[in-house]
Design a protein around this nucleic acid. Structure first.
Length: 727
DNA sequence: AGCTAAAATGTTTTT
DNA sequence: CATTTTAGCT
């Protein structure tokens, strides 16, 4: 143990050994925060201050939790299994699975993700016969989520806003929404936290049990906690105050999700005897990168005092590039990476491309594919959010919990069983009238012969199908169950019959899902309960599957990149209106949040940081001019070298020498030359898949290609627009 | 009921 | 522009 302490700097050592009472660790980016947390836990165990099961560590991502567990295992083999290390949400599930019946829910509850919640809210809006232009599921849910984060239940919400017409309507929706969730034995993400707090507040004996159990509580990314998470922590730490929180107010980037920076700013007044340790020595980046980060963040007001420094040395300057448009920007990035890979011996995995919005990944992907640079996109559409996966999961949920109306509604006619909207409406009406689940109505379809006469037979078939699968739930392994589901329901047959590029991809995704289930089954901690598997599915995000050993450039949003580091980072789209985003430009508070996001992005880089922007960008299909982001301007020019050819020089270069810097990055690739296609070429189209060029007709500078596609047969395409890949 | 075609609509960011 | 929702037709 002592030799481990020797590797820490004085501030880190203090943070590790100061075990008793409230402790605030202000940890700047790259200052060894996880190292401190892990060593602190090891220190507590080593000193015999607590047994492993008395440790509770809360994180925001599964990835952070997993990393913590792995690093603890490296220090203390075999101990991490007993510790409660997990995300706020997963720890809450763990508690609720045991006791949520005290709140009137079934302990087999399901967790609804954003998509499910929206489906429920859509039903609510329809049921109350509201104008769906004025009340969108998304908008209403965001108001409700805000209310939940301030511990406001539907009744309180109604009372508070009784003089506000719009809010009163939302109060009714809030009530109905909660009613529907409860009826389905379902909870949404916010409910996981709220219900845990409610449970512990209403049951003092239970609270005392958990307070006594968790002798030491650690919270990661404390600046991102919301009010409910704050309450939960206060409850659990209420007895002993052995609460250690780690965070960086400069990296608070989740205000839109209810995060309250005030939590970290007022920690010392919340806990009178709190100690504070500041970690500002950075072990990740070069001094130049830190100088740039410091320069940007210093434009924010009301920050906790700290300034990152390092002994790593200055390193190279930041690299700036201004492109004509987003395509040239992408080309610059792809070719710069390719060059460093081919000539500089860099790994593709050393590079990360970061952007503000997921939409920006499309152009990047297109260019990377064309330039043959291996890449991996994280997030965007979550794997588990794909239609086919949600469908299979809906079947499984229904098998596990027949009162889950939302899942039933999702799959009752998927594949088509001739049970359409009209029938589902009748079923829903009956279930409301009789206060039971839709599945119960189907089960007793005979009793509703008048309303359901035409579809009674099909409903019976559906009931028999689900019942036959339900018998298997506890008797066969997970992977076999899923296989039975896709076979017996006809889901697989439907995809096979479709026989398109898209349906093939869906089949592959389902196979991948079965692989995930197989992995899950192998985990010794898995207790064989279907609901546990389903809960894993709900709480996992794509960033959790990021594999740093894979040799591919990784692309993701800045939000997803928090907590990660890369030798070389490309920070893209540094334009007003994009980063900072259009919606934040009018509010100083929002601009500060965007600036923190920029700070997070800059501090991901270890050695090299590229800052790229475009002079014009396509937004909603229209090309609009863009000017440099204020954040870009906030970085002193002496830290950067400009790689873009000055616009005025570019022309003369082309005229005289033929090739300029920006020319090199903007054109000249064979794929975009329409003349390059010949009869007999095998090509691949993004939508239509593989095909053979049958004829080429010149059409001005462009050409019309006739192609025989394997999937859809003959089709004519303009060569310049078809985005074809030659094979 | 289900298909196709036209229209509308949306871009932050995510556990 | 790209996806999702709706209208109109079979």
């Amino acid at each position: 143990m002592n030799e481990i302490l020797d590797k820490l700097n004085p501030a880190q050592k203090e943070a590790v050994t100061c075990t008793e009472g409230p402790l605030l660790i202000v940890a700047g980016a790259g200052s060894g925060k996880t190292t401190v947390l892990v060593n602190r836990i090891a220190y507590i165990i080593d000193r015999g201050l607590a047994a492993p099961y008395q440790i509770l560590a809360l994180t925001f991502t599964n990835k952070a939790a997993r990393e913590m567990k792995e690093r603890i295992t490296a220090l203390l083999p075999g101990f991490s299994g007993d510790m409660w290390i997990g995300t706020f949400h997963s720890i809450c599930v763990k508690i609720l699975r045991r006791h949520i019946d005290l709140l009137g829910y079934s302990n087999d509850f399901v967790i609804y993700d954003t998509i499910d919640s929206r489906a429920v809210m859509k039903e609510c809006i329809r049921e109350l016969d509201l104008d769906d232009k004025q009340f969108t599921p998304r908008g209403v849910l965001s108001v409700i989520s805000g209310a939940k984060n301030n511990s406001m239940d539907a009744d309180t919400f109604e009372t508070i806003y009784k003089n506000d017409f719009r809010m009163s309507v939302i109060a009714q929706l809030y009530k109905l929404y909660q009613q529907k969730l409860k009826k389905s034995s379902a909870v949404d993400f916010d409910d996981l936290l709220i219900n845990t707090v409610k449970l512990l507040s209403l049951n003092p004996d239970l609270l005392e049990r958990y307070q006594n159990r968790f002798r030491y509580i650690l919270v990661d990314e404390y600046q991102d906690t919301n009010n409910i998470q704050y309450l939960l922590i206060s409850l659990l730490a209420g007895g002993h105050h052995n609460i250690c929180v780690v965070g960086d107010d400069d990296q608070s980037i989740y205000k839109f999700r209810g995060a309250n920076v005030g939590n970290i700013l007022s920690f010392e007044s919340d806990y009178e005897d709190a100690k504070r340790v500041t970690l500002d020595q950075n072990y990740r980046s070069t001094q130049t990168i830190l100088d740039a980060a410091n320069a940007v963040i210093s434009h924010n007001g009301s920050r906790m005092e700290k300034k990152l420094w390092t002994s790593n040395g200055g390193g190279s300057k930041l690299h700036a590039f201004t492109a004509r448009d987003e395509y040239e920007e992408a080309r610059f990035i792809a070719r710069t990476i390719k060059k460093q890979h081919d000539e500089g011996g860099a790994r593709f995995g050393d590079f990360a491309v970061l952007y503000r919005t997921n939409a920006q990944s499309r152009v990047l992907e297109e260019i990377f594919m064309r330039e043959a640079v291996p890449y991996r996109v994280l997030a965007g559409l979550r794997f588990y959010d794909r239609k086919e996966i949600k469908d299979i999961v809906a079947y499984l949920r229904l098998l596990s919990n027949t009162s889950d109306d939302t899942s039933l509604r999702r799959i009752i006619n998927e594949p088509k069983r001739k049970i359409g909207a009209a029938t589902v409406d009748k079923l829903t009406a009956a279930s409301i009238a009789d206060d039971c689940s839709v599945y119960d109505i189907i089960k007793n379809a005979d009793a509703y012969a008048d309303e359901l006469k035409s579809s009674a037979g099909r409903l019976k078939e559906f009931y028999a199908l689900i019942e036959s699968l339900r018998k298997l739930v506890d008797t066969i392994p997970l992977t076999q169950l899923i296989t039975r589901v896709i076979n017996d329901t006809g889901y697989l047959a439907m995809l096979e019959a479709e026989d398109t590029q898209e349906s093939l991809t869906r089949q592959e995704n389902i196979n991948e899902f079965i692989n995930v289930a197989a992995e899950f089954e192998k985990n010794p901690e898995y207790n064989g309960r279907l609901s546990e598997f389903l809960e894993g599915v709900s709480l996992i995000s794509d960033i959790d599957s990021y594999d740093e050993d894979e040799d591919a450039v990784v692309m993701m949003t800045i939000h997803s990149a928090k907590g990660l580091e890369f030798p070389t980072v490309f920070l893209t789209g540094l334009e007003e209106g994009l980063f900072p985003g259009m919606k934040s430009i009018t509010s100083e508070d929002d601009i500060e949040e965007e600036r923190r996001l920029c700070y997070v992005a800059i501090t991901r880089a270890k050695k090299d940081l590229y800052l790229t922007k475009a002079r014009s960008r396509t937004v909603f299909g229209k090309t609009v001019p863009a000017r440099a982001s204020r954040f870009f301007e906030e970085i002193p020019k002496e830290y950067t070298e400009d790689l873009s050819a000055p616009a005025s020089l570019a022309k003369s270069f082309v005229r005289s020498a033929g090739k300029s810097m920006s020319d090199y990055f903007s054109g000249g690739d064979a794929q975009s030359d329409p003349l390059d296609f010949n009869k007999g070429d095998i090509v691949e189209h993004r939508k239509f898949g593989r095909g053979t060029v049958v004829s080429v007709k010149q059409f001005g500078k462009d050409a019309i290609l006739e192609i025989n596609f394997e999937s859809i047969g003959y089709k004519q395409l303009m060569a310049a627009f078809a985005k074809l890949k030659k094979l």
